[in-house]
C-alpha cells in the first residue's frame, strides 16, 4: 500500500494531481470492472444451476460442480468424449494453424526486415495491412467463395478437368484452416518482423562470409533472434484461433464443431448460461495453461507479448 502511495505521489509530482488521479482511476476501473470482476462473475456463475428466475436466491441456488461434471461425463456414466473431443480437436487445430502461420510468415518477415527497401518495403507494409482493414466476416466469406462446392477453386478445377465432381473443401476443413491462417497472418508477420529487425545485417553477412549455408544462417543466427517474436506471435495466433467463433461458424463443416461453438450453443440455443460459463472457463483455463506451458518450454516471458 505504501508502495502504491509512493508511486501515486511520484506521479503527482511528475504530471500533476489531475493526471495522477485520472491514471489511478482509469487503471483501477479497467482492471477491476472490465477485467477481473467479469472473470470472477463468470467463474462463480459456472458453479451454479440453471434455474428459472423465480428460484434465484432460493434454496436450490447453491454452488455445484454439475456443469463441469457434464463436460467430463455427460449425462451418462461414461466420459463425455464428444465435448472433450471437440476441445482437443480445437486445440490441435489451433496448434496446426499457428505452425502454419509461423511457416508462412517467417520468410516474409525476414524479407521485410532484411531484403526489401525503399518503395518495395513501403508497398509491402501497406499490402500487409490493407487486407486486415477488411471485416473478419467478409474475409471468411471470401474463403467460402473460394472453396465452396460451386466456388472458384472447384469451378477452375472442374473447368480445367483436374477433377470432375466438386471437392468438398469445407467438409475437409481446408477452407477453415486456410481462413484462420489468413486471418492472423498480420499479427505473426509483425511480431516476427519486430524481432528480426533488430538483427544486425552484418551478422548475416559475416556468417555467409564464413561459408555458412542459407539454412545454417537462419538456424544459427536469425532464428535465435526471431524466437521471442515467434513466441509472441504464436501465443496471440494460438489464443485467437482457439477462441475464434466467426470463422468456424462460416467456414466450418456441418459436422465439425469448434469449442467456441459449443459455448455459443449453450448460451444462445440452449439458454443455459451457467453451463456456457463453465465451458468458457474451461476454454480460458486450458488455453492459458497451454500457453504458459509453451512459454516455459521455450523460455519466453509474458513481457515479450505484444511488442
Amino acid at each position: 500500500m505504501t508502495a502504491l502511495r509512493r508511486i501515486f505521489s511520484e506521479m503527482t509530482s511528475r504530471h500533476g494531481l489531475g493526471v495522477a488521479l485520472f491514471v489511478a482511476g482509469a487503471v483501477l476501473f479497467w482492471v477491476l470492472v472490465l477485467v477481473v470482476l467479469p472473470q470472477i462473475a463468470m467463474l462463480d456463475y459456472s458453479f451454479r444451476h440453471n434455474l428459472p428466475r423465480a428460484e434465484l436466491g432460493g434454496p436450490r441456488d447453491a454452488h455445484t460442480l454439475a456443469n463441469y461434471r457434464y463436460f467430463l461425463f455427460g449425462n451418462g456414466a461414461g466420459f463425455n468424449t464428444l465435448d472433450m473431443g471437440v476441445l482437443l480437436k480445437t486445440l490441435a487445430a489451433a496448434v496446426f494453424v499457428t505452425l502454419l502461420d509461423i511457416l508462412i510468415c517467417y520468410p516474409i518477415a525476414f524479407i521485410l526486415a532484411h531484403s526489401a527497401s525503399g518503395v518495395g518495403l513501403r508497398l509491402m507494409v501497406i499490402g500487409l495491412i490493407v487486407p486486415f482493414w477488411i471485416n473478419e466476416i467478409l474475409r471468411a466469406f471470401a474463403f467460402r467463395v473460394l472453396f465452396g462446392a460451386t466456388g472458384v477453386i472447384n469451378g477452375i478445377g472442374q473447368a480445367l478437368g483436374f477433377w470432375s465432381t466438386p471437392v468438398d473443401f469445407v467438409r475437409a476443413d481446408v477452407a477453415l484452416y486456410a481462413g484462420l491462417a489468413y486471418a492472423y497472418v498480420l499479427l505473426m508477420v509483425f511480431s516476427i518482423y519486430n524481432a528480426v529487425e533488430t538483427l544486425d545485417r552484418n551478422q548475416i553477412e559475416a556468417a555467409r562470409d564464413m561459408g555458412a549455408s542459407w539454412w545454417r544462417v537462419h538456424w544459427r543466427v536469425v532464428l535465435p533472434i526471431a524466437k521471442p517474436g515467434i513466441a509472441s506471435g504464436a501465443t496471440m495466433v494460438f489464443m485467437l484461433t482457439a477462441g475464434a467463433l466467426a470463422a468456424p461458424q462460416i467456414l466450418g463443416g456441418p459436422s465439425n464443431l469448434w469449442f467456441t461453438q459449443l459455448i455459443y450453443q449453450w448460451f444462445n440455443d440452449a439458454g443455459d448460461w451457467q453451463r456456457g460459463s463453465a465451458y468458457a472457463t474451461i476454454l480460458l483455463v486450458v488455453c492459458l495453461v497451454f500457453v504458459f506451458l509453451m512459454m516455459r518450454v521455450f523460455r519466453v516471458s509474458i513481457a515479450a507479448i505484444g511488442r
Partner: peptide
C-alpha cells in the same frame, strides 16, 4: 501482465463474462 491478458483471453470469454457480471 494484467493489462495485456485481455488480448489473450478469447473474445467469447470476454463477452460471456461481461454479460454474466452485469446480469448479476
Amino acid at each position: 501482465a494484467v493489462l495485456i491478458t485481455p488480448i489473450l483471453i478469447p473474445g467469447v470469454v470476454i463477452g460471456i463474462s461481461t454479460i454474466v457480471l452485469w446480469g448479476a
